[in-house]
Design a protein around this nucleic acid. Structure first.
Lengths: 162, 162
DNA sequence: TGCGGATGATTGCGCCAACAACTGTCTACA
DNA sequence: TGTAGACAGTTGTTGGCGCAATCATCCGCA
């Protein structure tokens, strides 16, 4: 059946296979450090944000988890001391998740191994010029499929300024 | 913190964002037809296999779901009449999942819309020559991270011979 | 100032998938 | 031929996540 072997279908399937294959490798590294994929993504997004913190809903938007999902992720991470909740001074509905020292320490512990895995299974496999073009193509698609991937990037003082 | 902005990290993050962004688009199409992502992947893998069937464990290997996961997926699909279980003549432990007429009909119903989405959000965004190179790169990685993606591709008669 | 709708976060509920334990079957080897 | 261990598939249990409902708060507008 031709329809079932359409090149677009196989392209999409290939994409999925590669991504899930890579994710399997990296999540094994996270698991060694007692983190899930979601935990890691949450922590690193906090670490890279101004004041090492994000509003819960911005975290949700960035991770494409639901807000209820984020509530629970932060619950878990808070229980482990990797993250703290902080009330928002200007909006009493909102709260910030802030990564703690223990959180950044956990990241520093796990990232070197994570980078090794990425190198072995992804970036190191592809010649540099092709890798650059590959990433350009990814960015091209990203800008279309995920226009709001940068939710909450303005710092908290900027946001307070309005 | 330099470590948190390593280019390999951002490359991996970009990959993840693009994949999940695309998956969101396509799973909406599946949902309209009453299928989950997993349902669709299962059905199309069966449709493309010899005799439109695969052993449960081969299905598990191809989809990187656990065998118990496959059991339940096939349970659901069987309940909807899209798949049937068939005993294996040569190994009474094994059973085959076989896609039904209704199953292929469902695929034929959903694939055109699915292809449109892939075109709009992925293949249509990238100039043809760059797309070709992009896919080459994906294949390069795939062959390394997923060496056994072809579990069970030998047909049932071949398997019986061997 | 006061009110209605919008928004941020949390919680109850249900579904889905992994892990581990289990049953039945196969196979290698004595 | 008989047995031990491997293997295919299913089921009980557990934990994660999304959806919808809920509560508190904010904001636009009269």
């Amino acid at each position: 059946m031709e329809l079932f072997d359409d090149p677009r279908l196989t392209a999409m399937g290939l994409f999925a296979e590669v991504y899930t294959g890579l994710a399997d490798k990296t999540s094994a590294v996270f698991a060694e450090a007692g983190l899930s994929d979601v935990d890691f993504e949450t922590l690193i997004r906090l670490a890279r944000s101004p004041q090492q913190s994000l509003r819960m809903s911005d975290l949700a938007a960035q991770t494409s988890l639901s807000t209820s999902g984020i509530t629970r992720v932060v619950d878990r991470l808070e229980r482990e001391g990797l993250v703290t909740r902080q009330a928002c001074a200007t909006d009493r509905r909102a709260s910030y998740a802030v990564i703690t020292e223990a959180g950044t320490a956990r990241l520093r512990q796990v990232i070197p191994r994570h980078l090794e895995e990425i190198e072995v299974w992804f970036t190191g496999l592809v010649p540099p010029d092709r890798l650059a073009e590959f990433l350009d193509t990814l960015r091209l698609i990203r800008d279309v499929v995920r226009p709001c991937a940068t939710a909450g990037v303005t710092s908290r003082v900027d946001a307070a300024r309005g």
